[in-house]
């Protein structure tokens, strides 16, 4: 890809958003407790500050409703946000699923667009042929992305991840055009930020993207000793990572808290090509321990 050479490197550790949003893949109960803690945005900014004091300057943030107050707080406190790099994930899929349950997927799209002022054009678009729509379809997708991204205005973006529900849906349907569009649009529109994909199908996605000429995609996927959320199985994911041809962000490294940090990172750094790790931390003690273990294991393995 033409922007490959200019693409800035990924941060080695990215603070994950899941605890801030009450997401816990192992326990709904724990998730709900964290949701209560981080509904006070000061607890979120305190955690970001704590991480930055320990050299972690990157934050992943999906377009969850709570992203807005977090971004507002970051903009209001340059002391925390200067030099902080954001890794958005879009869209916040639960919101769209809920809206689609109410009014159907088409109406969700149409209503979102009409809010952005292009809904009135849709009547005209729909009267045109497939060729006309083809052009305008991409415009609609651009608008939908920009609507989601508005919350991050003036913050420093390093990569913009497509949520795994959409990445994996487009992968399954074989929508090559969407991936080509996304690769071109994100860096152009967002100041060189990389197009990036979150997936639960790392080997499958990587194979297809390579077939489609996307040579070194940025991919975030689960990677852990338990094999949790690694499809179709752990060995295939390990092989894909060893073969390379991607910038890799490991998520789910603790298998949702199932693995202890020491064994988890000892395993992870056996593999080359782990450019970055996204970690969810809910307390300062937990953050301290996690960062220390990651750095120790990374150095021990010379990764």
């Amino acid at each position: 890809m033409k922007h490959e050479t200019t693409r800035p490197p990924l941060d080695p550790i990215i603070l994950g958003h899941n605890p801030f949003f009450g997401v816990d893949h192992l326990s709904h109960e724990k998730g709900a407790a964290r949701d209560q803690k981080f509904s006070d945005i000061r607890n979120v900014t305190a955690m970001i500050r704590f991480a930055r004091e320990r050299g972690v300057d990157a934050l992943m943030l999906s377009t969850h409703p709570r992203a807005r107050p977090i971004c507002d707080a970051l903009r209001a406190e340059p002391g925390i946000s200067d030099g902080l790099r954001l890794y958005p994930v879009l869209p916040y899929i639960a919101k769209y699923v809920r809206m689609a349950n109410e009014k159907g997927l088409t109406n969700v799209v149409l209503d979102s667009l009409s809010g952005a002022g292009i809904g009135t054009k849709l009547g005209t678009i729909l009267k045109g042929g497939a060729g006309v729509l083809g052009r305008d379809l991409m415009k609609m997708i651009e608008t939908l992305i920009d609507l989601e991204m508005a919350v991050f205005t003036s913050l420093d973006l390093r990569a913009v991840f497509l949520h795994q529900a959409l990445t994996d849906l487009c992968l399954g349907l074989g929508l090559r055009g969407i991936f080509e569009f996304y690769e071109e649009y994100i860096p152009r529109r967002y100041n060189g930020a990389a197009a990036a994909y979150c997936t639960y199908n790392l080997p499958y996605l990587l194979r297809r993207l390579h077939e489609w000429g996307i040579e070194r995609p940025v991919i975030m996927a689960s990677f852990n000793k338990a094999g949790y959320q690694m499809n179709p199985d752990r060995p295939s994911n390990e092989r894909a990572l060893k073969e390379g041809g991607l910038s890799f962000v490991a998520m789910g490294t603790l298998a949702s808290g199932y693995l202890r940090p020491a064994e988890a990172y000892e395993y992870l750094f056996r593999f080359p090509n782990v450019d970055s790790i996204v970690v969810g931390v809910s307390t300062e003690a937990h953050a301290e321990e996690t960062f220390a273990v990651i750095r120790r294991e990374r150095e021990a393995r010379g990764a």
Binding site: H25, A165, D168, N224, G227, Y228, M230, N231, A255
Partner: peptide, 17 residues
């Protein structure tokens, strides 16, 4: 037995195995 132990991979996962 927790979910990571019971996890079984699938050929393609879209929104849940």
């Amino acid at each position: 037995e927790r979910i990571p132990e019971l996890f079984e991979g699938v050929p393609i996962d879209i929104g849940g195995g």
